[in-house]
């Protein structure tokens, strides 16, 4: 018998094993929900799958009586817009400063300690300041996301630039490259796929900051809705919303991964060989 570290599942088996925990959770939920509803048909904590389905179809298809909008889509659009703006701006800042700090020792000496300190400030502690300075509108929510993840991306990309082999930078200089050209043609294209990696890693944090900002001051958005219906113990809304957010986050991550493979095949070649 082989050692356990040498036993590998086949492709099909791996897929089934991966599904198993999901199936288990659903089954456990179904039993628990059923038990509670048998004891008390008005129980709101663990609604049955039928109730969940009804609520989802209402949220996704019928206009709300109060606003006339279809809530799920309106909330999704509002949240995704904030998230995209925040993450996009953070990525741009991260790329610019990451490349500059990684490539220019003088700039690094001047700014790296500052960026490191910035990244240690808990972003949520700044939220009140953001609300005071930028008001309760969209801007403060986007700024919170930017502030929450940009320092991480800057530091990560700076690190990646510094990890480029010394030989490459010397070689580029013997090929007549000046500082600007080397940043543009040697460093930048090589950190773009690493930027995608950094963004993927920071998406979880970006969602956290988004939901937090929406929970505190907003009139629409996925986080706003969850915290709104919390007062009515409306688990039939909260649970589908959480699942929906998870699905969106998963799809974004998957999309970025595929985008990276499509745009930077040279970067992913290595992984497959390894």
């Amino acid at each position: 018998m082989k050692r356990i570290i040498n036993q590998r599942p086949r492709r099909g088996a791996a897929l089934l094993l991966g599904l198993l925990p999901f199936v288990l959770v659903v089954i456990v939920y179904a039993f628990a929900s059923d038990a509670r509803l048998t004891a008390n048909p008005n129980d709101k904590l663990l609604p049955s799958f039928a109730t969940l389905g009804e609520t989802v179809s209402r949220l996704a298809t019928e206009p709300s009586k109060r606003s006339g909008d279809i809530e799920l889509w309106k909330d999704t659009a509002a949240s995704l817009q904030r998230l995209a703006l925040g993450v996009g701006i953070a990525a741009l800042i991260g790329l610019t400063f990451g490349v500059l700090l990684g490539a220019l020792p003088y700039l690094r000496a001047g700014l790296a300690p500052f960026v490191a300190s910035l990244s240690l400030i808990p972003p949520l502690a700044l939220l009140p300041i953001l609300f005071i300075v930028f008001g309760l509108g969209e801007l403060s929510k986007v700024v919170l996301i930017v502030f929450g993840i940009a320092p991480f991306i800057v530091r990560d990309l700076q690190q990646r630039v510094q990890e480029l082999p010394r030989e490459q930078l010397i070689k580029a200089q013997t090929l007549a490259g000046n500082t600007w050209q080397i940043m543009l043609r040697v460093i930048l294209p090589q950190v773009l796929p690493r930027l995608i990696d950094a963004v993927r890693l920071s998406l979880g944090a970006a969602w956290l900051f988004l939901i937090a900002a929406e929970a505190i001051a907003s009139t629409e958005g996925l986080g706003y809705r969850i915290f709104l219906v919390r007062r009515y113990l409306a688990m039939d809304v909260i649970l589908p919303y959480v699942a929906w957010i998870t699905l969106l986050a998963y799809l974004t991550d998957l999309g970025l991964k595929q985008l990276s493979r499509l745009l930077f095949p040279w970067y992913h070649g290595k992984e497959e060989h390894a």
């Binding site: 082999p165 030989e167 490459q168 070689k171 930077f264 970067y267």
Partner: peptide, 9 residues
């Protein structure tokens, strides 16, 4: 150099 002389991208 012995290694890393070419640009992977």
């Amino acid at each position: 150099f012995q290694r890393y002389s070419v640009f992977p991208h």
